[in-house]
């Protein structure tokens, strides 16, 4: 078994020491600091990027809040304007309607008065016609000439029954 050949122990140990010490110094002085610097830089970069993202998000949220507040204000103002306009219009409409109603009432009253007058006149004419007719009938049936006032009185009495 070559592993138990003691004459080979010395060169193996000597070169193990040389190579391992060289490797240790190369690793601890050159390679590992480089890698750790790169890893640290990356960790810092990621952390700062995350912070930046956080900050931007907070900013965005703030802007959104301001926007929403303004939007709400504008909406409230619009509501106010609409309500005001509606009220004004309602008031105008009420005034107009009142005046129109008044006019209509006046016209109606006028028309009614006219109708009443016409009716009275017509009635009067009917009475006169009835009295004339009655006088004519009486003259034809009875003869003579009845007093006009009496005929009118009788007609009025009949008509009022």
């Amino acid at each position: 078994m070559p592993q138990l050949d003691f004459s080979t122990f010395a060169p193996q140990i000597v070169w193990l020491v040389i190579t391992f010490v060289a490797l240790y110094f190369l690793m601890s002085k050159v390679a590992l600091p480089r890698i750790s610097v790169v890893l640290e830089n990356r960790r810092d970069r990621i952390a700062s990027d995350l912070d930046e993202a956080q900050r931007l998000r907070a900013e965005t949220e703030e802007v959104i809040q301001v926007y929403e507040a303004e939007l709400a204000e504008a909406r409230a103002k619009a509501h106010g304007i609409a309500a005001e306009t509606r009220e004004k219009l309602n008031a105008e409409i009420a005034v107009e309607q009142a005046s129109v109603d008044e006019k209509i009432d006046a016209r109606m009253a006028e028309a009614e008065a006219k109708i009443t007058a016409m009716k009275d006149q017509a009635m009067g004419e009917v009475n006169a016609a009835a009295a004339d007719t009655a006088e004519a009938i009486i003259r034809a049936l009875v003869g003579g000439r009845p007093a006009k006032a009496e005929v009118a009185k009788a007609v009025a009495a009949v008509r009022s029954n």
């Binding site: 004459s7 060169p11 193996q12 070169w15 490797l23 190369l26 690793m27 390679a31």
Partner: peptide, 23 residues
């Protein structure tokens, strides 16, 4: 006896590979 043997050769190769790779 510090002879450079085949064992030493591969120790050196390993150190060169590791250092080369990591550096």
């Amino acid at each position: 006896d510090a002879s450079f043997t085949n064992s030493s050769l591969f120790m050196v190769v390993a150190v060169v590979l590791i250092s080369g790779f990591n550096i």
